[in-house]
């Protein structure tokens, strides 16, 4: 699965890196950055939590490409 942040949609709420620091970090302006773009299956729940916690809907988890 593939984890992405749409940088045109992210406004820097920081929910992703506060909640799931193992998958997300912050840039110098406080916008979210993916640090593990292809998380392991073990991290699926954490990735989904970030997706559902983003007020802007900026994070997508592409389930395709079974690994």
């Amino acid at each position: 699965m593939r984890l992405e942040i749409d940088t045109d949609v992210c406004e820097g709420h920081g929910r992703c890196y506060d909640l799931v620091p193992e998958l997300f970090g912050a840039d110098a302006a406080g916008r979210g950055v993916v640090i593990a773009a292809e998380p392991t299956e073990q991290r699926r729940a954490a990735a989904e939590l970030a997706v559902r916690s983003c007020p802007e809907g900026a994070i997508t988890l592409d389930a395709g490409g079974s690994r």
Binding site: E11, G12, H13, G14, R15, D18, G30, L49, R52, S53, C54, P55, E56
Partner: peptide, 22 residues
């Protein structure tokens, strides 16, 4: 959880001080 609240607004005017407030 999850809690995608709008306490700091959203969009380009998202509260500038939200990280300080938290």
């Amino acid at each position: 959880s999850p809690n995608p609240h709008l306490g700091f607004g959203a969009g380009p005017h998202r509260c500038l001080g939200s990280h300080l407030a938290r």
